[in-house]
């Protein structure tokens, strides 16, 4: 299961800006609701988070030390 950006649907007003900037077409509008499609093509560019005018999208990073 591919990790994907998180959309807070309670905040989202379906403006569609994230759909426009998503290079891998992982964010789509289905029946006027922003929906994320799981895909390994999502490179975590965080453009969707950056463009969201109301902060409804989070692309959170886990930070780890390299092993060894």
């Amino acid at each position: 299961m591919a990790e994907m950006p998180y959309i807070d649907l309670e905040k989202c007003d379906c403006c569609g800006h994230c759909v426009e900037v998503c290079k891998c077409h992982a964010i789509v509008l289905v029946n006027n609701i922003i929906t994320i499609i799981e895909t390994e093509d999502c490179g975590w560019c965080t453009e969707c988070e950056a463009i969201c005018p109301i902060g409804a999208i989070s692309c959170a990073f886990e930070i780890v030390f390299e092993e060894g």
């Binding site: 965080t46 988070e49 950056a50 902060g55 989070s58 692309c59 959170a60 990073f61 886990e62 930070i63 780890v64 030390f65």
Partner: peptide, 28 residues
């Protein structure tokens, strides 16, 4: 940074910006 996955909270670039007192773009 955690030694194990899931041992520390995940941070967005916006979170890091809000901690560092700067803009998200600068963190990027």
């Amino acid at each position: 940074a955690g030694d194990d996955v899931g041992s520390k909270p995940r941070l967005t670039q916006q979170d890091m910006a809000a901690m560092a007192g700067t803009a998200r773009e600068v963190v990027g």
